[in-house]
Amino acid sequence: MTKADIVDIVFEKVGYSKKDVAAVIEEVFETIKAELEQGEKVKVSGFGNFTIRQKRARRGRNPQTGSEIIIDERRVMTFKASQLLKKAINTGAPSVKP
């Protein structure tokens, strides 16, 4: 499923103009990205939490050449699914809210 499929599903449910619905969905993801960029976490109840984690620099290896390299410190984005989502994934039942 891609963003276009999500737009279709939301459009079918709410109507309005597809273009406007697409703009809102675009804005939702942009807002989440901007928040994470500031180092803030984003909690979507019933779905899960997006957080930024700081990773320290560490020694690694280039898997292709085998040469040792330093992996710089960096920030990574992680997602932790909510209990509700985890449960839905394991039962295959429709999750969250109607």
Partner: peptide, 12 residues
């Protein structure tokens, strides 16, 4: 809500 619900359904 519909956005996250549709993603959850797809994963489920």
């Amino acid at each position: 809500d519909t956005l996250f619900q549709s993603m959850a359904d797809s994963l489920a």
